[in-house]
Nucleic acid binder design. Sequence first.
DNA 1: AACGCAACCGGTAACGCTACCGGTAATCCC
DNA 2: GGGATTACCGGTAGCGTTACCGGTTGCGTT
Lengths: 344, 344
Amino acid sequence: MNKPATIKDIARILKISTSTVSRALRDASDVSAETKNAVKSLSEELNYQPNKFALSLQQKQTHTIGVIVPNLDYVLSTMVKGIDEVALEAGYTVMVCQSNESFGREIVNTKRLSESLVDGFIVSVSSETKVFDHLKKIQAKKMPMVVFDRVTPFLEAPTVHLDNKDGGFQATEHLIEQGYKRIAILAGPKNLEISNHRLEGYLTALKKHKVKIDPDLIINCDFNQEYAYIATQELLSMKKRPDAIFTISDRMAIGAMLAIKEKGLSMPEDIGLVGFNNEPMFSLLQPSISSVDQPSFEIGKVAAKLFIEMMHNNEDMSSVVEILKPKLIIRESSQRLKKNKLTK
Amino acid sequence: MNKPATIKDIARILKISTSTVSRALRDASDVSAETKNAVKSLSEELNYQPNKFALSLQQKQTHTIGVIVPNLDYVLSTMVKGIDEVALEAGYTVMVCQSNESFGREIVNTKRLSESLVDGFIVSVSSETKVFDHLKKIQAKKMPMVVFDRVTPFLEAPTVHLDNKDGGFQATEHLIEQGYKRIAILAGPKNLEISNHRLEGYLTALKKHKVKIDPDLIINCDFNQEYAYIATQELLSMKKRPDAIFTISDRMAIGAMLAIKEKGLSMPEDIGLVGFNNEPMFSLLQPSISSVDQPSFEIGKVAAKLFIEMMHNNEDMSSVVEILKPKLIIRESSQRLKKNKLTK
DNA sequence: AACGCAACCGGTAACGCTACCGGTAATCCC
DNA sequence: GGGATTACCGGTAGCGTTACCGGTTGCGTT
């Protein structure tokens, strides 16, 4: 009961060789059914578990995926769940490391995991990351790597992410259709792709509907709630204040909502508001807030599938890009035109 | 550049033995400074990284901690950050697996990780888990295991958790002091310790202040927001409705808040509300909601420290219990008596 | 001159497993 | 009946690393 049983123990007890035991356990062809049964039942009895390290040492494979994420908020932890699901099924184990939005931490994590602990990586970069040498080093080692969610053009790797342009477009067009005329956007940090793409979608929608683009209504600020709160206060104290706000994250929408309420304005009458991510809490606020929902779980699954594909047939897949569609969930905060059915 | 360098390569190039290389790299005493330098500079150049598997195979140690959590919500992901921090510093890598509140998933995860992938576990059990054989099996293997947050009396292991009784007490006493007379509690599932302890604290506070205990005001429901919403609706339609509600999680507080607003009641005047966990969003709602803050990061750190201590001097520590104190954060939702300074 | 003792270093085995080669016995076929 | 084929099994080496034992120098001591 103390030392874990090995293949040797089984061989010794059954008076056969370790080779035979090994083959029997793996259902190889050239072992008699009789010995197979003997081996299997004994291994069951001894609670035999193969030593992964011995295997990895030999086969240079760990069957483990390193997942690096900037944090574990609602969206990312859901994506990780998706990764988990697929990986588990394919016989992989997942190691999750959060970089905590810190560039330094991201480097340490990748380095550690790449020290022969994992077969490859599924990465979402931190907001601080502007240099990608640590990830390129991994690619140089021929380790498979998939980038998801927070992607970057500076890395040649297969990629999974939301159609952020479409998300921005849907939200903005919806606001236009609801009769809002001066639509502001709280965009995120300028160096993040997701931020810029959502902004692009916003611009496209305005152009399509021939709404004049006012640079004063485009605010780049941090993802932080506080910043959004302050930015909204400033927006609302403009001479020609906006009559709708689109924030590219839900946390920012909360900040905006607070500022709107403090100003004594009502949603959706005075101001329309649409967020991004559709955190579950959003349906419960008052007013409930419209938000662009992304298939986070699915994105995680696709990333993992891509990774496993990359693992198996190791051809170059760096040009593969999987883009998933968002879906606008319309709630009270932006529903100015009365309709029969309100999405709760 | 293709194959990773091994000590053999270094030995071959330097024309010395692998043993010497090994010792040089570990700064052993009986290697001349000269060869040490030669070895170190060459290993640098070749980008040598020791193969963890060869090490683990020999020393039966993985320097990896398996962390099993039911989910990665705000509280738990903060705790995991704490674990990360301490583990990294002590030279350990962390593998996080979320059981997704599923008993079956928890079993699969523990089994996988225990297959010689990790040295031991830091666990928070799922809400479904009522049988603990899978964890006892791990203990039988003499693997160190620390239980945190969601603890259970059915497991003899060192334990780290919040003083949940005190949390319940603080919240309830605060409501009493604010002049609320009929204080309801939305407690969680009956089989969870954290739920029962917070309820106990509630009862203790009532007794201390000689407030009559009304069983109708004690509701056991799921952690779910929806349930809290419904439960609150029922509470508010009682003949003698409560004038304050204490929910043992923040998600539940949101549900309660929604029901209160729908009923046209105001906080804190008509109804006082206190939540639990102090999720960051809470300070931004309107009214801002009072909540019991727990030192999640610290709890994670303590759990990891305990684990490492257990690793090093492997004596029996199953009786160790670390209890950390919560701190009530008072905000608008329960602040009926006007004071000069409001905590924002 | 003979011995002892550091200071260094090399060789070997072992960790648990599988790939590979080879061997034995039984069976089959002409 | 002899060679070929099949079905099964064993031995050995090797994955990368370190522990252990032993050996070789060179120097100081008696």
